[in-house]
């Protein structure tokens, strides 16, 4: 199947995009890089649409900016642009790391973070990094504009609360890491014919004095949608970082998910073992980064 749409539009403003969505009344589809969507259409898994609305020429959509305590990412920003961006590397390390392992370089050069989040796969690597930063997304549509936490945007595997036929994810934002905060990402793959991760995880945490004062852990695939390991996060707060504490958090995370084996991808046991192995490691890495940010700040101060 080579046809994917009848009309291809490249609006240059959000207003124009929304007007087009209104015009097509549900028979349109917003596309970023299209690196997932068009492959699915080529494979016949999705039907062609009347109109494809390319979100990557909207004014300012390529911007990555930091204002106040917030890092803002436009819907046209590609994974490659995120990986190479100094602001994101510094203030949202796990996001840059997550985007860095998506697909291959050619796909990262075209695919967008907005698309990754809107696609709502249970284990999008960029999404996972973004969730650990407690990121939020801006959704614009005929009925106006709203910001919601990204974690609330997932409705099922590949299903988003964003109506991708009538709405557009215009911007993403996360609170920039402050001194004492650090984040990290890790993914386990297999080299055989499956492009989906066995497990993808991201964490961020904050140190106050010697203790962890906040933590966010995202992981997938452990269910139909990306998972936030709330109980494990809570268990970390109030104690100093330690290998024991991190291993305990991994066990708590495991107790709170129902892992499933997936055919040709991984057994339940292997998934669990990877969480046991790598969640403590990336927590430790995030803690090191948090500590290092303080040393760096102190170094600058003195």
């Amino acid at each position: 199947m080579t046809s994917f749409c009848t009309n291809y539009h490249s609006p240059v403003s959000v207003e124009e995009a929304i007007e087009l969505l209104r015009h097509y009344d549900g028979d349109a589809r917003v596309v970023g890089g299209g690196t997932d969507l068009l492959v699915e259409m080529r494979r016949g898994l999705r039907r062609p649409v009347m109109a494809m609305i390319d979100a990557t020429r909207i004014a300012d959509c390529k911007i990555i900016s930091r204002s106040d305590d917030c890092v803002l990412i436009g819907c046209g920003v590609t994974h490659t642009e995120i990986i190479n961006n100094a602001t994101i590397k510094k203030f949202g390390t796990c996001l840059a790391e997550g985007c860095g392992v998506i697909g291959g370089p050619q796909v990262r050069n075209v695919g967008t973070l907005a698309g990754n989040v809107a696609h709502a796969l249970p284990a999008g690597d960029g999404t996972m990094g973004f969730l650990a930063l407690a990121g939020e997304i801006e959704i614009a549509g005929v009925n106006g504009v709203r910001w919601i936490p990204a974690r609330d945007s997932f409705a099922g595997p590949g299903r988003s609360v964003i109506d991708r036929h009538r709405e557009i994810l215009t911007r993403l934002r996360f609170r920039a890491a402050v001194i004492g905060e650090g984040s990290a990402f890790h993914r386990v793959m297999r080299p055989q014919g499956l492009c989906l991760p066995i497990i993808s995880m991201a964490v961020s945490l904050r140190l106050d004095g010697a203790s962890i004062s906040a933590a966010t852990i995202s992981m997938g695939p452990v269910g139909p949608t990306p998972h936030i390991a709330d109980a494990a996060m809570k268990s970390l707060v109030g104690d100093p970082p330690s290998a024991e504490k991190f291993s305990e958090a991994a066990e708590i995370a495991l107790q709170n998910v129902t892992l499933r084996g997936s055919k040709y991808r991984a057994t339940t046991e292997y998934r669990a073992q990877m969480i046991r192995t790598y969640l403590p490691l990336i927590l430790a890495r995030a803690a090191e980064r948090a500590a290092a940010s303080r040393h760096l700040a102190e170094g600058v101060a003195s």
Binding site: Y8, G34, L38, V39, N109, V110
Partner: peptide
Amino acid sequence: GICTVLVDGTPVVSCVYPALK
């Protein structure tokens, strides 16, 4: 990856790259 071309200097796979992009 064998269909890779450069768009504004950046490698992309042309087989899923909409021409109008």
